[in-house]
């Protein structure tokens, strides 16, 4: 029954690697980009907040599937080419969407640190930047861990949507195998187990990290 995994191991291994690679890059880009946007929106004043809020709200309201297909077909025009590698399109689409959500988590995290903590830092003769990096950001970061963990988990699951633009990630490779082997049940069931394990590892790791530092985020 599990012969199918041996027979098609080349496809599965490629899919596995692409899924891991895709998610690793998207996590790095979306957390970095989300942090930048979130910080800018929290500290940047009204104009920055409103202007940067537009793409964030747009990305949060468009289905990821649409974003992916749109990026795949529209970005070649933006870059002046006729084709963009599906992997690159998936990185862009997933990072944009994930980054939009994470920027809101970052903004909320920063806002959750009460303003009197900023006053306390300023009263100690710190500059505004020092207050942010030494007082506000560390506390905000701790509080952001659980929601960022959830968002990363959602991102891993959503990365399967990259199959619609033919990114050879695990779900697409599995679809190909199903088409060739006619064995949807065993393949899809194993796929479920795989995503369950992957997401649980990520979620548990972040939970462990959080429980170690949670006491430092209380105020």
């Amino acid at each position: 029954m599990f012969d199918v995994f041996f027979d098609y191991r080349g496809l599965f291994i490629e899919g596995l690697l692409v899924t891991l690679q895709l998610n690793a890059i998207v996590v790095v880009l979306s957390v970095a980009g989300g942090a930048l946007i979130g910080v800018a929106r929290h500290y940047g004043g009204k104009i920055v907040r409103v202007v940067l809020g537009i793409p964030v709200d747009i990305l949060r309201s468009i289905p990821l599937l649409v974003v992916l297909i749109w990026v795949f077909f529209a970005s070649p025009m933006v870059f002046g080419t006729r084709y963009i590698d599906p992997f690159v399109a998936a990185v862009i689409g997933l990072s944009l969407t994930q980054g939009a959500y994470i920027s809101e988590i970052v903004r909320g995290g920063l806002a959750s640190v009460r303003s009197t903590q900023t006053r306390a830092g300023l009263a100690l003769g710190m500059t505004r930047t020092q207050v942010v990096t030494r007082v506000v950001a560390p506390q905000a970061l701790i509080r952001m861990l659980p929601p960022i963990g959830s968002q990363v988990a959602i991102g891993i699951k959503d990365s399967t949507l990259a199959s619609v633009i033919a990114v050879p990630e695990l779900f697409r490779q599995s679809q190909i195998v199903i088409g060739d082997s006619m064995q949807p049940f065993v393949v899809l069931t194993t796929l479920m187990v795989f995503y369950f394990v992957l997401v649980m590892i990520v979620v548990r790791l972040i939970d462990m990290l959080y429980t170690r530092v949670a006491a430092r985020g209380a105020s």
Binding site: T116, Q117, R119, A120, G121, L124, G125, M126, Q130, R134, V135, P138, Q139, I142, V213, A215, R216, G217, A218, S219
Partner: peptide, 24 residues
């Protein structure tokens, strides 16, 4: 301050030392 406003992510000792380290 009325509500102390100690920095919750730092040890007590670091709370006291942070001003001189960062500002001074």
């Amino acid at each position: 301050f009325q509500n102390f406003e100690l920095f919750p992510h730092m040890s007590v000792l670091k709370n006291v030392a942070i001003g001189p380290i960062v500002s001074l």
